[in-house]
Structures are given as C-alpha cells and as structure tokens.
Amino acid sequence: MASDAAPHFSSRDAVVCRGVGKTWAAGTKRAHEALRDVDLDIAPGEFVVFLGPSGCGKSTLLYLISGLEDATEGKTWSFGDLVETPSPQRSLIFQETSLFPWLTVWQNVSFGLAIRGASQDERRAVAAEALQRVGLSAAIDKRPDELSGGMRQRVAVARALAMRPKVLLMDEPFAALDVQTRARMQDFLLDVWRDSGASVLFVTHHIDEAVALADRVVVFTSRPGRIKTIMPISLPRPRNLFSREAEALRIQLTELLRDEVDRAFAEQEAIPA
C-alpha cells in the first residue's frame, strides 16, 4: 500500500519499491493500468526473477526501476537514492540485441566510458577486462554482425559490467536464443553474477529459467500487474534441475501462473469485439 508515512527500509537495500504503479497513456482514452501497488525490497547481491504471463507489467517494473520510465504512483529507491533518471549503477540488458552495429565489440563495451570522456587506452583496457569476464576476449575487434545471438548477448552483458553496476536489470535477455544456448547462458550469467556481486533483476516467463536462477521468484498477476506471491528458491547452488525439489517448485509455479493465464484469457474474451 502506498502510505504517506516514511517508508521503512535500509539505505543498504539495492532496490526498494513502495506503492509503485504505472498507467500508460494516463488521462487519455487509451489509458491502461500496467502495474499497481508494488512493494518490493531487494538485497544487495540478490538474484530475483520476475515471473508472469505476457503483458503482466513485469518489464514495466524493470523500466521503472531503471529510471527510463516514470512511475505514475509510488516511489523507488536504490541504495537510499530516489530513482528519478537512468543511472550507470543500474544497467539494463534488453531482449533484442542492442549493440551499436557501427561500433566494434570493444567500442560497444566501453561506450559508457566514451561518454564520460575516457581515453582510448583506458577504454580498451576496461573493455578487454570485461570481455575476459564473459569469455569473449577473442572477439574484441569484431563487429556485432559477425557474432552469433548468444555472443551478442554476452557482449551486452560485458557492456553492462564495464559500468560496474550495483544492479543488473535483465529484460528477457535470453528469450531470442535457442534452448541449448539459453542453458549455457544461464550458467554463464550465474558465474558473472557471483563474481560481480551485483543484484540481478531478471524478467522471464519461463518457469524453468526462474527455478534455475533465482534466490527469490516474484510472481505477478495479470493486468494490472501486482505481486501475487514471492517464492524463495532455497535449492543449493550449483543446482540440480532434475531433482525432486526442483520439480516440485516448477509444479508449484506452474499452478500459480495457470490461474493468471486463465484469468487473462477470460478477460480477453469478455472484451466486446
């Protein structure tokens, strides 16, 4: 609930949302509420997955936390600072390739440093280090169009890491990849997450992905998006995804999501054509 009282949270928290809501095209005929009343606390170094049916507002929440979009209700803080504009501390990684096609891999990775006016040598050194962390040192002078989809997403991750973010926001980053590549990318992401120490907020509609990655899974209701439940995943890492516990969690999450998808379908059918 959005309350007038001072929010209770520690300034150490990576992300704090209080009563966050978003209505697109507010005040017009096309207005629709994407997100309502989100209260969320995310600890430093925590891996949180946002899970929900398509169009439930989970990506919207990610954009609000990044500062790229403004909330219509409530407020968000990151490490005690009110989120008002985008910040290099909170790097966003998109579903589609968002590399600049006219820059080489290392120029892409060090784009944020170029903006700050860093020297060529410094930029290349930082890019080389970030690329080493994602295992793509060999591709440093390549162009994005010479890389596969998975490699491009790793470059995008390297670009985010080069900014030394405290929060990594990932909007279905592996959705466009094939199943085998995605499994490898999940392992890769866990390695990166472990040695960067950043919190990761990861949006997906894949239950398997949520169970494989998350410390906590935030399950969203369908429109308007609200937090239905927050489920901790206490499986030990590295995870055996074929264990009985993992299977039980997947079934539990499937049940939770099915209600929402059913409700969304019922709503869509109720809309007069």
Partner: peptide, 22 residues
C-alpha cells in the same frame, strides 16, 4: 530502435551525446 537510445540513457549519456553518438 528505441533500445539503442535506452542503452545510451542508462549509461548516463546527455541529450547532445545521444544525438551525436547514437
């Protein structure tokens, strides 16, 4: 593509930088 602009924004690019570099 809006994502290219969003990437530059999250990296702290100013309006002139977004126009000039993206």
């Amino acid at each position: 593509p809006p994502n290219l602009i969003n990437v530059a924004r999250t990296m702290g690019a100013s309006k002139p930088q977004i126009y000039g570099r993206v």
